[in-house]
Simulated assay, not measured.
Amino acid sequence: MEHPEPDTRTFERGLAQYVRAVASAVGVPAESTTVEISDTATAYLGLPRRWLDRPDHDVMLVWTERRGWSLAVETEPTAATEVIAHHGGADLVPTPAVVARFVADTAAGRHCGPAAPSAVNTATRTSLSEQLRPYLGSETEPPA
């Protein structure tokens, strides 16, 4: 009898492929991304742009399993990052095109979302694994 892949491995592989798809959509090479699974799952994409009001600081796109996507700038190497905007909504796994639009709109000053999320999402890793499953084996978008 075939055993299904453990949920943690499915989650890790799905998240990595999803982050690669988002990176492609925002024009970031895969080597500029990081995915970490520990007590909290996170992803990081270093963006190849500077923020107009902080031209000396790196801009990053960050994902957490509780908050979803955020744009932030690094202030100092030892200091916490400063969040510029959060992608609103309850969907922690929006399509890569939606994330790319969020980045472009925020960079252009058109993002209306809050700088801080209003609540922590309570999606479980099992639920997130199911949302990420279409990205398994995909290098870009999930199958239609």
Rank of each mutant, 00 (worst) to 15 (best):
A41D: 11
V59K: 00
T124G: 12
P96I: 01
I37D: 04
E74H: 11
L15E: 02
P4T: 07
R20S: 07
T42A: 10
Q17C: 15
E76V: 06
E12I: 04
R54N: 12
A21L: 10
A100V: 03
V22I: 12
A116G: 13
S32C: 15
A23Q: 03
L132K: 10
T8Y: 09
Y44K: 11
D91I: 01
L45D: 01
L136H: 05
E76K: 12
L45M: 11
Y135T: 05
A41V: 07
T33P: 09
V35R: 07
T106K: 00
R20T: 04
R13E: 12
P6L: 11
E12A: 15
E5S: 14
H57M: 12
P134F: 13
Y44V: 09
M1C: 05
S127P: 00
S24W: 06
G137M: 12
G46K: 13
V99A: 07
E5K: 14
Y44T: 04
Y18L: 07
E31H: 15
A80P: 02
A90T: 14
G137E: 04
A72Q: 02
L128Q: 05
D56L: 14
P134A: 14
S129G: 15
T64P: 00
H57Y: 10
W69L: 01
A79M: 06
S32D: 15
A85T: 02
P142V: 11
G89Q: 11
C112V: 06
A115Y: 06
Q17V: 02
P55R: 08
L92H: 04
T10Y: 04
G89R: 09
V22G: 04
R133V: 04
T140N: 10
V83I: 15
E76C: 05
E139P: 00
P6C: 14
R67T: 04
L132E: 07
A16N: 06
Q17L: 01
A108M: 05
S118C: 12
L132D: 11
D105V: 06
V28S: 02
E141G: 03
L15Y: 10
D7R: 14
T10E: 12
I84Q: 01
G27S: 08
V103A: 00
R49S: 01
D53E: 13
T81K: 04
G27I: 04
H86F: 15
R125I: 06
R101Y: 00
G14S: 08
F11L: 11
G27D: 11
Y18P: 08
P114H: 13
T42Y: 07
A16H: 06
A72Y: 00
P77K: 03
T122W: 04
L61V: 05
H86L: 05
G14M: 04
E65W: 00
R66G: 02
S70D: 12
